[in-house]
């Protein structure tokens, strides 16, 4: 089985497990909804202010949800020595990183689109036809976030204080992704196609950097010995 086929098989495994258990996505949606409502409440009732804050709100909710999803997927793998089994069986262990990136990216893209719909309802966002560009943007930004998250979650998998360590280690690294994502989605909502394309290019560069580093270092980072 080559690298791509193994990665797709592992991503499929993650998605199937989640479709049957519906734990990661349920907790992520709940977490994201709470974050959206709380920050919306803290921001006050001014609709213009909330509309201006919407991209940042969606992204803050998404970042916290990404931690919940990634942690859940990693814990499933580490339970009952499943991870060690995969480690021994796979000829190219980078497939484990790629598989996790694919499944996380799918989860985060779906979650992001769900959040945009929730934001449109709760924050009265005027979603014009241009807003359809949020769909490919969600896919790209989810991929970018997934490339960093999959690596960091493997790094801290066996560390002590993991619930504290994971956000502390991951969130600062995701700040460039957060910034580019917020700016790109703001540009889409304001129909500024040129700006959106620039920030989407920044997301693409970040995805290339993180996935390059991930492929180079995953085996070192995730080795169970």
């Amino acid at each position: 089985m080559n690298l791509a086929a193994a990665a797709i098989a592992l991503a499929r495994k993650d998605l199937l497990v989640e479709l049957r258990a519906r734990q990661a996505i349920a907790s992520a949606v709940a977490l994201a909804a709470v974050a959206l409502v709380l920050v919306g409440l803290a921001g006050g009732p001014d609709p213009d202010r909330l509309r201006a804050l919407a991209p940042a709100l969606v992204w803050i909710a998404l970042l916290y949800a990404s931690i919940a999803v990634a942690d859940r997927l990693e814990r499933i793998d580490r339970a009952d020595d499943a991870f060690s089994g995969l480690w021994l069986v796979l000829p190219d262990r980078r497939a484990m990183y790629l598989g996790r990136v694919i499944s996380l990216a799918i989860f985060l893209a779906v979650l992001q689109l769900t959040l945009w719909m929730a934001a449109a309802l709760l924050l009265d966002l005027p979603l014009a036809i241009d807003a359809l560009a949020l769909v490919p943007l969600a896919a790209l930004s989810a991929l970018t976030a997934a490339t960093a998250t999959a690596l960091v979650v493997a790094l801290v998998a066996d560390a002590g204080h993991r619930p504290l360590l994971l956000p502390v280690a991951l969130l600062p690294l995701l700040v460039p992704t957060f910034l580019a994502g917020v700016q790109a989605s703001s540009a889409v909502l304001d129909s500024r196609a040129g700006d959106a394309a620039t920030w989407a290019a920044a997301l693409l560069i970040e995805a290339a950097l993180f996935s390059g580093l991930g492929l180079l270092t995953y085996e070192t980072a995730a080795s169970p010995d």
């Binding site: 960093a148 690596l151 790094l155 690294l173 700040v175 993180f210 580093l213 270092t217 070192t220 980072a221």
Partner: peptide, 11 residues
């Protein structure tokens, strides 16, 4: 730490 230090330096 070596892996994390590599990723961290991107900033």
């Amino acid at each position: 730490a070596a892996v994390f230090g590599t990723v961290a330096f991107l900033n």
